[in-house]
Design a protein around this nucleic acid. Structure first.
Length: 753
DNA sequence: GAGCACTGC
């Protein structure tokens, strides 16, 4: 801050007459005379090797030199000249850099040296799909550039903006964060260069950003774009980002630095992949050289189960043959595991059990977290059964579900690569080579093809993209998916009948929420319960707060029963949250009540953020003192957001039929309702052993026709119990005074339609 | 009478 030279503009420095004291200005001004985007490698290396930090004008620290030496060994460093040339010559570049190339840390620095964003008051952004990556890479790069994190180099993620306006010129951020910024600044004017890292992961946010940036690049010739990806996708991105038809975007390629991994296949398909996986792990333990093992399975239960079995069998082996079989530890890994237990993957393998006996081995049994988010050093063997849980979306019944599905070739390659990070490794694929070649898809389907897009469509609308169908997607979603999203947004009155975004829709897009939740929150002051709805919204935006340890299920269920409100799970959420806040002084409270401290803390964060959003729109936080009225209004507010997620009881076997989609469902066993009401509102449809609805509250038919008259229009219903029940509700309403209800409800009575 | 692939705003 105290740096008076901060205001000096190196961009213009070369235009000034030589300094009076006669000293060569370049010794004090390492960037003297540099012309942005026409910088050569020699100059950059000279500046990097100099005594003075060109960006802070402070002498370099001792550790700077040490770090610089290690940077010089990265494959990407050797190609600095080529990179700077291609960067100077092109607006859009596709870059391929395999694991260990150093692209994520080095390329943004090269760009900073060439682009000199600080001279123009602009920033270089580098997006990451994950928060931790944005944070840790920013920290590393700040060290490499010898600056304090949050000054010249910073990061920006939800809940944490570690940047200093006016000072920060290199910013790592999550892709979702950049997309949020785009909604208020569709041309992303603050940035001179935008780097999309890990583009091959094809997150929803990255996909939308690619489409958006392609358009912005045409309008803003001064904006440079770099798309960094894994090899297999490069050609697709090059074609997509061709500025003139037929001319692909240039490719910049950097080799990786990993060790070879030998891949083995099974001769025949394995009928039971879990059993085969366990067998393979034990085979490795008995027969292979020392080195840790990573086994990929699909979910928590499968993983815990496999760990138990591996441990049992390994103990048997050791007991039978202690001379030749070493000890083994088996560590489960999945994201819902508390961080402390996740740390166990970094424990080292056990030593030999007897002096000079065989060394021990560490087995990590993991979900896909170990494929992208977490790297475990020391893995030499990978066991890949070829499956993972993947999200699939069925637009016909508007349901997202998780399905165990075969992985893609790209994913299999990524998994195999995990064996070669420290030394040459082996990967055992539990499927045949023929299946690998013929059956596996090249790439995992991008998220945009597997998701409910109501949120995305609203975001695009807010970005000013009206014609969703002809938007330039890298991969266009199914028209039916877009139709479903438009339909929902129209029912919620976020879009008018012409498909234009309404003022309500604009407001909804500003909330980091699904449209239903945003709508419910925005209208909640009309129901005088915005305080409680804010809490519910926050609780619905974080992972499940209820813990249910395997060996204490009864105790956990009893604790939950004590906190439950019979009118519905949503009211229970309010109760739990309020109790959590009241009992904050008591460190053991969450523990003794079998609640997740982490999730509740997260809910508190989200609630605070949403409250700030509400304040911006002057939405008041209201509550009613009459509990009965409050409980009713909360559920009415729920209906105004979730009227498309209603189920009607059919018969007396506890079956429900979802409205319009006509799915036979049951209340989820975790549901806290003390009866089976005729009408229920649900937040989630889950398909497990059978179709369930989860997070459920009782609602009344009068509220449905009051608050969502269009949706519950009788003519749109087939004959059946649901229609009969609605008919009665309509008749009752017609018989009543038509001046309809109290003032609070009137505004949201009709979806503006 | 069940489960929670993984992210992100």
């Amino acid at each position: 801050m105290a740096d008076g030279k901060q205001k000096e503009n190196p961009y213009l420095a070369h235009l000034r007459p030589a300094q009076k004291d006669g000293v060569d200005p370049s010794s004090k001004e390492p960037l003297y005379g540099w012309i942005p985007r026409h910088v050569k490698g020699d100059a950059v290396r000279k500046a990097m090797n100099g005594e003075v930090n060109p960006f802070t004008k402070q002498p370099h620290s001792k550790q700077y030199k040490t770090i610089l030496e290690s940077r010089k060994k990265l494959p990407v460093f050797a190609q600095m000249d080529d990179f700077l040339k291609i960067f100077s010559d092109n607006q859009i570049i596709v870059m391929v850099g395999e694991t260990g190339s150093g692209k994520t840390t080095q390329i943004p620095q090269f760009v900073a040296f060439s682009d000199l964003p600080h001279a123009k008051g602009k920033l270089v952004a580098c997006t990451q799909p994950r928060r931790v990556a944005a944070m840790s890479v920013a920290k590393r790069v700040a060290d490499e550039m010898d600056v304090q994190l949050g000054r010249q180099v910073g990061y920006s993620i939800r809940f944490e903006d570690m940047t200093e306006p006016g000072t920060t010129f290199l910013k790592y951020m999550t892709d979702g964060m950049l997309l949020r910024e785009a909604m208020n600044d569709p041309n992303l004017e603050r940035y001179s260069t935008i780097i999309l890292d890990e583009a091959h992961e094809r997150t929803l946010a990255t996909d939308i950003l690619m489409g958006l940036l392609k358009g912005v690049a045409k309008k803003r010739k001064d904006l440079k774009i770099i798309v960094m990806s894994a090899t297999l996708d490069a050609v697709k991105f090059q074609k997509y980002f061709s500025i003139r038809s037929g001319v692909s975007a240039p490719l910049f390629k950097v080799p990786g630095r990993t060790h070879p991994v030998e891949v083995f296949y099974t001769q025949e398909p394995e009928p039971d992949y879990v059993e085969a996986a366990i067998r393979t792990v034990l085979m490795i333990h008995r027969a292979e050289d020392p080195g840790d093992v990573l086994l990929f399975l699909t979910g928590e239960e499968e993983i815990e189960d496999a760990c138990r079995k591996i441990k049992l069998e390994a103990d048997d082996l050791v007991n039978q043959d202690p001379e030749s079989v070493g000890p083994l530890i088996c560590i489960p890994l999945y994201s819902s595991l508390p961080p402390q237990q996740q740390q166990r993957i970094f424990d080292s393998a056990p030593g030999p059990r007897v002096p000079n006996g065989p060394p021990g081995r560490k087995i990590v049994v993991s979900t896909n977290v170990a494929e992208t988010s977490l790297t475990i050093d020391g893995i030499v063997y990978v066991v890949d059964p070829g499956f993972s849980k993947q999200k699939v979306y069925n637009p016909r019944i508007r349901v997202e579900s998780l399905l165990v599905s075969p992985i893609s070739k790209a994913s299999a390659q990524q998994r195999a690569g995990r064996a070669g990070r420290t030394r040459p490794g082996k990967c055992f694929r539990l499927y045949t080579e023929k299946d690998f070649m013929k059956e596996l898809e090249e790439q995992t389907h991008p998220e945009i093809l597997r998701s409910n897009l109501s949120n995305t469509v609203l975001e695009l609308m807010k970005l000013g993209i009206k014609d969703l169908v002809s938007f330039d997607y890298v991969d266009a979603p199914a028209p039916e998916t877009l139709m479903r999203a438009l339909e929902l947004l129209n029912y919620l009155a976020a879009l008018d009948d012409e498909g234009n975004i309404t003022p309500l829709g604009q407001m909804m897009a500003d909330f980091p929420l699904d449209p239903q939740l945003a709508k419910m929150l925005i209208v909640s002051p009309e129901f005088k319960c915005s305080n409680e709805i804010l809490t519910i919204t926050a609780m619905l935006s974080v992972p499940n707060v209820w813990l249910r340890p395997n060996n204490q299920r009864r105790e956990a269920d009893a604790a939950k029963a004590k906190l439950s409100v019979p009118d519905g799970d949503h009211l229970t959420m309010v109760n739990v949250y309020n109790q959590y806040v009241t009992n904050k002084h008591d460190k053991n409270w969450t523990w003794t009540n079998y609640l997740s401290q982490r999730a509740l803390q997260q809910a508190e964060n989200v609630r605070a953020q949403l409250q700030r959003n509400m304040e911006r729109f002057e939405l008041e936080l209201l509550s009613l003192s009459d509990e009965k009225k409050l409980f009713m209004n909360i559920r009415k507010a729920l209906v105004s957001g979730f009227f498309m997620q209603i189920a009607h009881k059919e018969g007396d076997k506890g079956n429900y039929l979802t409205v319009k989609d006509n799915q036979v469902v049951a209340l989820h066993p975790s549901c806290g309702l003390d009866s089976q009401p005729e009408w229920v509102l649900f937040n989630e449809f889950v398909l497990t052993t059978r179709p369930y609805i989860r997070t459920v509250s009782e609602v009344k038919s009068d509220w449905l026709i009051e608050l969502a008259a269009n949706y519950f229009d009788l003519t749109s219903f087939p004959d059946g119990e649901t229609k009969q029940a609605l008919k009665r509700a309509w008749a009752k309403r017609a018989g009543k005074d038509p001046s309809r209800g109290d003032g609070a409800d009137r505004k949201s009575k009709k979806p503006k339609h």
